[in-house]
């Protein structure tokens, strides 16, 4: 693997007296898909929200391309070149699919403060190119508010790619989707990420998706990393089996 894009070290976060994330460390390289898994309440979301700037860690280091991003706002982190998708899709329901992607493109180009020009006349080919990548070009004119859930996920992916990110954070990318769609969506994300040398960190509940798409897997339990490695290694790990299957097995 070439260059490390995201490096996390000694990450800590406590809520009240509860250690939600404790001494977590990992790294993701360009073009690599790293899955962060663990049972409910393991600290995945907390971890994620610290990476994308919504939560401030109590301690530790988060380095994006060698630069410490702890304490930066989600906006600033995005500007550095980090894209993200949400567990529950967040798109602009009253705008069309193309306009959604154009919003991200306009923002990236610093064109949003224009006050009198008509929105949508610029960056249209770029938006359509992104939509074509995720297979949504034929629905470009439809408002996002009427789309099927799986299609919304694709629009989100296109928006997340609009600022040409070097790191993509995907929180439960396939949550709420039908099983067959899940693998397809993650395959799409993986293909685009590898082609564009984007580092991807994703959390996921669906083990089929994780083991078929991730290059490496790290496992979080009660705030601590208990295992990490290639899918086959993680699958064979005793501790991981105990966490997922219960200690009685």
């Amino acid at each position: 693997m070439n260059g490390v894009v995201l490096r996390v070290d000694a990450l800590h976060k406590a809520f009240g007296g509860v250690q939600a994330v404790e001494d977590v460390a990992f790294a993701v390289s360009a073009g690599e898909l790293l899955a962060l898994i663990g049972p409910n309440g393991a600290g995945k979301s907390t971890c994620f929200n610290m990476l994308n700037g919504q939560l401030e860690p109590d301690g530790g280091l988060i380095e994006f391309e060698g630069r410490n991003i702890v304490g930066m706002s989600p906006r600033a982190i995005w500007r550095l070149g980090v894209g993200r998708t949400f567990q529950i899709t967040a798109t602009f329901a009253s705008l069309s699919v193309r306009e959604n992607v154009q919003m991200a493109l306009y923002s990236h180009a610093g064109k949003l403060t224009q006050f009198l020009s008509r929105f949508g006349s610029e960056l249209r080919p770029e938006a359509d190119a992104l939509l074509a990548q995720v297979g949504m070009l034929d629905q470009a004119e439809r408002p996002c508010g009427v789309l099927a859930y799986g299609d919304l996920k694709r629009v989100e992916l296109a928006m997340a790619l609009a600022n040409q990110p070097r790191l993509l954070l995907m929180d439960e990318p396939t949550a709420g989707m039908a099983p067959r769609e899940r693998v397809a969506l993650m395959e799409l994300a993986a293909r685009l990420a590898r082609a564009q040398k984007i580092a991807v960190l994703f959390t996921e509940h669906d083990m089929d998706v994780v083991f078929s798409q991730a290059d490496r897997i790290i496992v979080l339990d009660r705030g601590r990393l208990i295992a990490g490695g290639l899918p086959a290694e993680v699958r064979a790990n005793r501790d991981v089996q105990a966490v997922y299957l219960g200690s009685g097995h």
Binding site: N52, S73, P74, R75, W78, R84, F86, S94, L95, M103
Partner: peptide, 16 residues
């Protein structure tokens, strides 16, 4: 309009 629809997403694509 975008901010009304989803403040979360607006923030996530760098909008103040």
């Amino acid at each position: 309009r975008a901010g009304r629809d989803s403040p979360l997403r607006a923030e996530a694509i760098g909008i103040d």
